[in-house]
Design a protein around this nucleic acid. Structure first.
Length: 533
RNA sequence: GCCGAUGUAGCUCAGCUGGUUUAGAGCGCUGGAUUCAUAACCCGGAGGUCGGCGGUUCGAGUCCGCCCAUCGGCACCA
């Protein structure tokens, strides 16, 4: 049960500035946005965090190639990601960058604490080193290569270096116990089992510093060692809330948002989030996040996305969808058709178009349109005055009443949003629309209206329809904020921001649409031409 | 190679601990009905060896074995 006013938070990974924004970033962030909006709509205090990861050898290298400083490259690309947030209408409450002073200073404090506690120690690493590539290769890989560099053909050499390590191995049994006690810590279940299985195989300590590049946060007391980007990056979730300085101003204001309900990530970074990060939090005695949700990947027209195939769904491609179908249609597709489970999902122009037409045009928009149109025609555009709450939703025996049905549906939708079952929430919300359509088909108000004696009956039917459309629009606001606001405006209802105070139950309460309210014709999604291919 | 999933109508998938007789839904396709609505809504149809083979059982998409295909994980990779 969502305890009314408990503060909640959600995070995306911070995006690596060496990448260009693409559908993967857009997807993760959109899911978080939908969740965050749903919680706000329910009257909760929400903190939605995203940002950029800006250190590391790759950024250093790219900057060198372009002849600019790493910071300049990071500034440029971080800005690019920020623009994307705006373009997608994302409602994040903060945008953290790992090159910001507020982050760096706290990472040092955290690492310092781990040094003192002995969870981070100076160790020695020895392995096969490729001098030409300046990198180590694993023992098994070295053997495969016959101990020669795959690039230069020169022999690999045995090399040693000092690194700081995090004592991950010391947390193996604690982690196992934690996983056993929290079967929903990693979702979906398939991912949980994957991690749980690997945990059983034992853990090795992980290096937390590097010495072969310098673009990063220096190790306290040993600046020649640079904190490994992964460790640096994970801390963003805590530094944004000021957790390294518990008595500081930031922590006093934002500490209430810890622990997050969800760290939403892609499956490729599950190990760090589900094992390394929790162990670090244990070492720092910080409470665990509630859930690490690892979604899968979008594939494109049945094939893995790759630059060489040219089927990458990049920003320009996405913007073309915005132009044709609109932002909200894009959000609907992301939310309802995405790879939120263990399986990858296919993105194709044809599928996008079918979903748009079937669900948004033919179902949602058509229902809003036929209802508003009849009210216009038969009641001069004013919400009819009639008792509707006790009306059964259909002629079927044992059918529940409209007020009971929508109350239960609203509760179900909200529960599913909260539980990160976003597609299920969407479908449940749409069930109200389907019920309205069914009612119209069963009662045929357009036929009854031909005889003025039937007007009271028509009033009752259309009153139900209008209230149903309004409630569905409320429930779909988190996914389609712009279009649903349009529908609500046409149905004379308050905007999203005004209705959050009483939570979803109040916003979706039957009967809020007062008799006499001006209702204007409304068609939120228009039919568009099918894609060429 | 090792470990783990998945494989059901054109597509995406439901089918819990085996047995309501002709295996379901949505979309797509197709015939009809209808007009309040954006050729939409509504009704009907279209017949898929339930990946393959073998087994357990009175009886198996539903249990067991083997095989095939696809996918994921195998740690320092953002």
């Amino acid at each position: 049960m969502p305890q009314a006013r408990t503060p909640v938070s959600i995070t995306t990974p911070i995006y690596y500035v060496n990448d260009r924004p693409h559908i993967g970033h857009a997807y993760t962030t959109t899911l978080c946005d939908v969740w965050a909006r749903a919680q706000r709509l329910d009257g909760r205090d929400v903190f939605f965090l995203t940002g950029t990861d800006e250190h590391g050898a790759k950024v250093e290298k790219s900057a060198r190639e372009r002849g600019i400083t790493p910071q300049a490259l990071a500034d440029e690309n971080s800005e690019e990601f920020r623009k994307v947030m705006a373009l997608f209408g994302l409602s994040n409450d903060d945008f953290i960058r790992t090159t910001e002073a507020r982050h760096e200073s706290q990472v040092k404090l955290f690492v310092q604490r781990l040094l003192v506690s002995g969870d981070i120690y100076l160790g020695e690493f020895e392995g096969w080193y490729d001098e030409g590539q300046e990198e180590y290769v694993t023992d098994t890989r070295a053997k495969e290569l016959d101990y020669k560099s795959p690039i230069s053909g020169k022999p690999l050499v045995r090399a040693k270096e000092h690194n700081y390590y995090f004592k991950l191995s010391a947390y193996a049994s604690k982690l196992e116990a934690f996983f056993d006690a929290h079967p929903e810590f990693v979702r979906p279940l398939g991912r949980f089992n994957e991690v749980r299985g690997r945990l059983r195989e034992g853990l090795q300590d992980v290096p937390v510093t590097r010495t072969n590049f310098s673009w990063g946060i220096g190790m306290p007391g040993a600046p020649e060692h640079v904190i490994y980007v992964w460790i640096d990056a994970l801390f963003n979730y805590a530094t944004a809330l000021g957790l390294a300085e518990p008595s500081g101003a930031v922590a006093r204001a934002r500490g209430k948002y810890w622990p997050p309900e969800y760290h939403v990530i892609g499956k490729e970074i599950l190990w760090f989030h589900a094992v390394v990060w929790p162990a670090m939090l244990m070492a720092l005695e910080i409470p665990m996040p509630k859930c690490v949700y690892a979604h899968s990947f979008w594939i494109s027209n049945g094939q893995k996305m790759s630059k060489s195939l040219g089927n990458f769904i990049d920003l320009p491609t996405i913007e073309a969808y915005f132009a044709k179908y609109g932002l909200d249609a894009w959000r609907w597709y992301m939310t309802t058709q995405g790879p939120i489970g263990t399986q990858d999902a296919d993105f194709s122009p044809k599928h996008f178009h079918e979903i748009y037409t079937a669900q948004l045009v033919n179902t949602f928009a058509n229902c809003a349109s036929r209802t508003s149109s009849m009210i216009e025609k038969y009641f001069a555009g004013a919400m009819p005055d009639a008792e509707t709450a006790s009306m059964p939703i259909s002629a079927a025996v044992g059918a529940s009443t409209w007020s009971a049905f929508t109350e239960a549906t609203a509760a179900d939708v909200q529960k599913r949003y909260a539980n990160f079952e976003l597609a299920e929430a969407a479908d449940a919300a749409l069930s109200v629309i389907r019920a309205v359509d069914l009612l119209i088909n069963e009662t045929q108000p357009f036929k009854l209206a031909k005889d003025p004696a039937n007007l009271p009956q028509v009033a009752r039917i259309l009153g139900v329809c209008a209230e149903g459309v309004r409630i569905a629009a409320v429930l779909l606001l988190p996914i389609m904020p712009t279009k649903c606001s349009e529908v609500l405006a046409a149905y004379g209802s308050p905007m999203e921001s005004e209705m959050a105070t009483g939570g979803v139950a109040e916003a979706a309460r039957w009967g809020r649409l007062a008799a006499g309210t001006r209702i204007s014709k409304c068609a939120p999604f228009m039919r568009v031409d099918a894609p060429a291919v």
